[in-house]
Design a protein around this nucleic acid. Sequence first.
DNA 1: TAAAACCCTATAGGATTAATAGGATAATAG
DNA 2: CTATTATCCTATTAATCCTATAGGGTTTTA
Lengths: 142, 142
Amino acid sequence: MISKKTKYGLKALAMLAKAETDAPIQISTIAKTENISQKFLESILLSLRKAGFLGSKKGKGGGYYLLKDPRDITIASVYRILEGPIAMVPCVSLNFYEKCGDCPDEDACGVHRLMIQIRDNTLAILENSTLADFILPAAGKQ
Amino acid sequence: MISKKTKYGLKALAMLAKAETDAPIQISTIAKTENISQKFLESILLSLRKAGFLGSKKGKGGGYYLLKDPRDITIASVYRILEGPIAMVPCVSLNFYEKCGDCPDEDACGVHRLMIQIRDNTLAILENSTLADFILPAAGKQ
DNA sequence: TAAAACCCTATAGGATTAATAGGATAATAG
DNA sequence: CTATTATCCTATTAATCCTATAGGGTTTTA
């Protein structure tokens, strides 16, 4: 299960991607449309901006806008920013690796081997899904 | 990321599957071998027994043992018992469905559609992985 | 210069996780 | 029959994480 933070982040990104305009959209607009607590959404969009997905404009007429083509924003990359590791256990994470406290020998650990398989399969899905998949009706990929 | 509960449960099941004997193995033995808090492991094995995966024997010479063939215990089923839903959001969960608080129309929600795809792909992996995959060296499936 | 809108930090309440404690119950060995 | 072994079960706790809120600061535009 992903956190609401990640879910809200994805919904916000989807809305920005659908907009198809370069004009910034305000936090309050997104919050109302998607039924998200505005203050909570603020912190989420801030993270996404610092991660390089979003640009922002301050002052009257300001707001947030996408910096990249939706096809170049993978779900995997958003997931890592908002949710953290994609792997099920730290000892098989590529980007957030941590050694197991228990388990002296990773190569001898059956759980470890299985988790690597699951990680690779999951990654294949998340790396191949992009924001663009939100917009189009669920047709095949181009 | 899965909880330690699920990870410990999988390690314990893997150890029981490897044992290849009908003789019960004691909690203390599993806890020491796998470096798991014994009391914590107790509650985990209890859940797995109630779920029908394990049998137990009390008293001297007692312990836990597998009730099924390792090939008939899918990772998905263990995951659901110890961790909960496999889906990333409740509104696409098959076994633990819950309607979104936000999001009035599920069919119109881009996140919803994507999460269904991810769920189906993840399920395909977890339903096709079994305890038996822990035992054999990572060779191809039979 | 006033209003709009993002920027940033802190914090609080609640839920969940991980572990511990302590005993009750059942089975076996001698 | 009794002592020992080992599971069974409930309750509690400490720590962490999640979600949300508060409250102002800063920048931009009209």
